[in-house]
Simulated assay, not measured.
Amino acid sequence: MANEVTVPLLPCASIDDIAAFYEVLGFRTTYKQRKPNPYVALQREDLNLHFFEIAGFDPEQSYGSCLVLTSDIEGLHRAFAAGMRAAYGKVLVSGTPRMTRPRARKNYDGLGGFSVIDPGGNWIRVVRHASAPAEPATAPEGRLARALANAVVQADSRGDVRQAVRILDGALTHPRADDDPVTQVEVLIYRAELAMVLHDPETATDMLARAERVVLGEDEIERAAPAFENAAELAAALR
């Protein structure tokens, strides 16, 4: 058989909150009912997500999750980010809901991905479709790069932010002369992002300031540009 479609059915505390959030990301409501059970169906192009409401549901205890396979991770992230900026004045990087940035994940063959954590605590994991062209994955080189890769797996994939913090803090506590300065910037800015997830604005501010003080050469400034774009988003969220 062919042309089958699988649609995730995910829990939430309020279908109204879910619908409002996903409309910000460019979805539209295709079906909604209150009785006999609250239920909402949402669609954005070929992406379909359905939700059911549970009275007293705690999003922080949710195990709801699904994969979204796409050939354009960056484009989808930009579209979601634009919707957040228009609705909230910033990209949501802490609390629930929030969205992570596209990053290579060593537990997904080094290919990029990002996650949306919605108001129901569901993790919508956006990953590159296996058939989509991608740069060959390379193993992270250097102590800091390995620490960063491990931290991304813990926080962005497993949701264990505190373990990711322990990994990065251990790497940052023992700097070495041969540490790549661009990777140092990336680690500091990611550590700032994790601090915001943990509602620790003082640490986030400190990490962003430390990243600004890293001395970079001309070519290194160009390599670090994406990380500093993230830093600008974080700084805006802190204000």
Rank of each mutant, 00 (worst) to 15 (best):
A130Q: 06
P136L: 10
K32E: 13
V182Q: 10
P8L: 08
T70I: 09
E45A: 14
D178V: 03
A155D: 01
R213K: 15
G112H: 05
L67C: 04
P226I: 01
V185S: 10
L172I: 09
A86P: 09
D109G: 03
P11C: 02
Q163M: 03
T29Y: 07
Y190W: 08
E218A: 14
E202A: 14
A104F: 02
N230I: 15
L148N: 04
G217W: 14
V68Q: 12
E222Y: 08
R191I: 02
D169N: 12
Q184H: 13
A79N: 05
C66I: 03
L188H: 10
S94I: 00
D156N: 10
T203F: 06
A81W: 04
D200Y: 06
V24D: 05
I73H: 06
R210S: 12
E222W: 13
T29R: 08
C66L: 01
H199K: 12
A237V: 06
K90R: 15
D169I: 02
R146V: 10
L69N: 10
F80L: 05
S71E: 14
V24A: 03
T29G: 05
Q163T: 06
F228P: 05
V197N: 02
R213W: 09
D118E: 11
A177S: 14
R210Q: 15
A86S: 15
H77Q: 10
K35N: 12
F80N: 05
E202C: 02
A192Y: 06
R146L: 11
G95Q: 12
V91T: 15
D46K: 14
I15D: 03
T205R: 14
M99C: 06
P226T: 01
K35P: 01
Q33T: 15
A171V: 07
A19G: 13
S157C: 11
Y88S: 12
V126R: 04
R78P: 03
E135A: 08
R98K: 14
Y88A: 08
A139N: 09
G75H: 00
V165L: 00
T183N: 07
P181K: 11
R98S: 13
R210W: 10
R162E: 11
A236R: 11
L47M: 14
A225T: 08
R223G: 06
P133A: 06
T29I: 07
P102M: 09
M84A: 13
A87F: 08
I221H: 11
Q163P: 00
